[in-house]
Design a binder for these strands. Structure first.
Lengths: 212, 212
DNA sequence: CGTCTGATGTCAGACGCTGACATCGCGTCT
DNA sequence: AGACGCGATGTCAGCGTCTGACATCAGACG
């Protein structure tokens, strides 16, 4: 029998989620979490640099999977499509923990400090995706922009998936956001009062140099 | 003669910038800042909710200007164009404080906690811009996506402007990022080895970009 | 002249987080 | 088997961030 119970990390994570939901995030002390997990405050900080980090322990694995999926896309796939494809490939994992995700999401939305942490995680993810695209010979700044666009699609798609009580799957929301983004950036969606035609951006003027 | 020196807020801000640059962000305590400004730690926290906030005091005004500019764009302007236009309208203000911006930027890049704060400010800005677009009858999710895209353009354009020692003006960088984003989302920029997506949705929309 | 107000100071304390050092089961080497 | 080192955890002390409660006092205002 080991000197200590195993899975300290998971115990801390579970304890945190439970206490956050019952007492609230601010009212829960790191000491509380550690005690609930049968550990010490000091030990908590050996596993997590931060009180907030305990809610983001799984993001690294997810990022690795996404980056991997981006790298595996066919060479003919346009960058943004490969990013969205990678997100869809990972969607099932999120779909499997929808309830947990929803509770976590509620906490994050309600607490700016958690929102900040999530944003930097997403930004880190975007940077990693951009790097993966560069590895596939996508030039800058197209790589960064495709990554940013992909993350924006993910954010909006995820939000809507969580908000949509009916929807079991995430992918359709991602595809919808992707399609909308294309329309917006392509200049096709304008105010209901103004049609495409008048806008400058819709001028079908193919400024020369097509291919490559 | 007033009981206290006026402009406490500005004094705190100036003191903070100076100390952050000389001693470094972490090595500077709130007490140091307050003392340098001739005030008390407690008073610092009356002006800024946070140690970090002292570096973001001006963002609200900027946001108001941008939102205002979005609201003033012509009704026929496509949403993303009006966002980029609003950013360009505000660019001169940033251009006037390039050195300050550069120093501040260096601090932010070097300290994750500051990066987090900046990200949430940008996200707040994006939400405000989306709201302004909705007020202009741009439907969701186009409004949110256009706002997100605009902020991504701003981020990348600003980064490159700061990095580019030669460039005095920000607007060209914004326009360049905008153009690149159109290309990326339109599916025209792909790996050097591959062509436009073979199958579907890649509408061969010739990024018209008229204007100017 | 008295009162009220608002910006600041003082004080005490909770909480987040860190460095330094102690503990002690367990595997390993000899 | 016995000595030894390792690694996860505990203990302790302490700094810095941030907050609530209350005191102070110059100037505005009646």
């Amino acid at each position: 029998m080991a000197r200590w119970e195993p899975n300290a990390r998971e115990r801390l994570e579970a304890a945190a989620m439970e206490l956050f939901q019952t007492r609230g995030y601010v009212a829960t002390t790191v000491q509380d979490i550690a005690a609930q997990a049968g550990l010490t405050e000091r030990t908590f900080f050996r596993y997590y640099t931060d009180k907030r980090e305990v809610l983001f322990g799984r993001t690294e694995e997810l990022q690795a999977l996404i980056v991997d999926a981006v790298g595996k896309a066919g060479p003919a796939t346009p960058p943004l499509d490969s990013v969205v494809g990678a997100l869809e490939a990972v969607a099932p994992i999120l779909e499997g923990r929808r309830e947990h995700g929803k509770a976590r999401y509620a906490l994050i939305v309600a607490h700016p400090e958690l929102r900040e942490r999530e944003l930097i995680k997403l930004t880190t993810l975007a940077a990693a995706v951009a790097e993966a695209l560069r590895a596939r010979r996508v030039p800058e700044p197209a790589a960064s922009l495709a990554a940013e666009a992909g993350i924006a699609i993910f954010r909006i798609g995820y939000d809507r998936w969580i908000a949509d009580a009916k929807s079991k799957t995430l992918s359709p929301h991602l595809r919808a956001a992707h399609k909308e983004l294309k329309a917006v950036v392509g200049g096709q969606v304008v105010s209901t009062a103004a049609r495409t035609k008048s806008g400058a951006a819709s001028t079908p003027k193919p400024k020369g140099r097509g291919r490559s």
